[in-house]
Simulated scan of single mutants.
Amino acid sequence: MTPPHSERRRFQRIDFDAPAELRQGEQRWPARLIDLSLKGLLVERPTDWNPDPTQNYEAVIQLDADTWVKMQVELRHEELTRLGFVCLYIDIDSMSHLHRLVELNIADSTEMMRELRELIE
């Protein structure tokens, strides 16, 4: 039997504590980012979490005062204290920032190239 969240992942997650905001229509939820990858993110569940389960979200992650990563995401798993999202769309500027962040945190350049190939396929 495979344990939950086993090594099925094709994208290495990096721990990254940063301010984030989840958006759905007019609703906004500040959230703390726990980790992210080229394909998704994990955040602490906001205390006032009450989304429309039929709609997707926009995740906005603040990397520094002038740098943001924005992606359209879908909720994939929901736990008592955490929410896991998969990226559906990311613009080129946000992807460049995210790529650089992941690249700085993955010591193995071969692994980084493998992840980029996986993302494209």
Rank of each mutant, 00 (worst) to 15 (best):
M1Y: 11
M1E: 07
M1L: 09
T2M: 11
T2V: 11
T2E: 10
H5G: 01
H5W: 08
S6G: 09
E7Y: 02
E7C: 09
R10M: 10
R10Y: 07
Q12M: 13
Q12C: 09
Q12K: 12
R13D: 00
D15E: 14
F16H: 14
A20N: 14
A20K: 14
L22W: 01
R23I: 03
G25D: 09
Q27S: 10
P30I: 02
A31S: 08
I34T: 05
I34F: 05
G40Q: 01
L41K: 04
L41A: 11
P46D: 04
T47E: 07
W49V: 06
P51N: 04
Q55A: 12
Q55E: 09
N56E: 10
E58C: 10
E58L: 10
V60M: 05
V60K: 09
V60Y: 04
Q62G: 03
L63W: 04
L63K: 08
A65D: 11
D66G: 03
V69D: 14
K70W: 08
V73D: 03
V73Q: 04
E74Y: 03
R76S: 07
H77P: 02
H77K: 12
E78S: 13
E78F: 00
E79Q: 04
E79P: 02
L80E: 13
L80T: 05
T81D: 15
T81A: 12
F85D: 14
V86F: 11
V86C: 13
C87W: 06
I92W: 07
D93N: 12
S94I: 02
S94K: 12
H97K: 10
H99I: 15
R100L: 15
E103V: 06
E103M: 02
N105Q: 08
D108N: 15
D108M: 13
S109D: 01
T110E: 13
E111Q: 11
M112L: 13
M112F: 09
M112G: 11
M113P: 00
I120A: 06
E121P: 00
E121F: 10
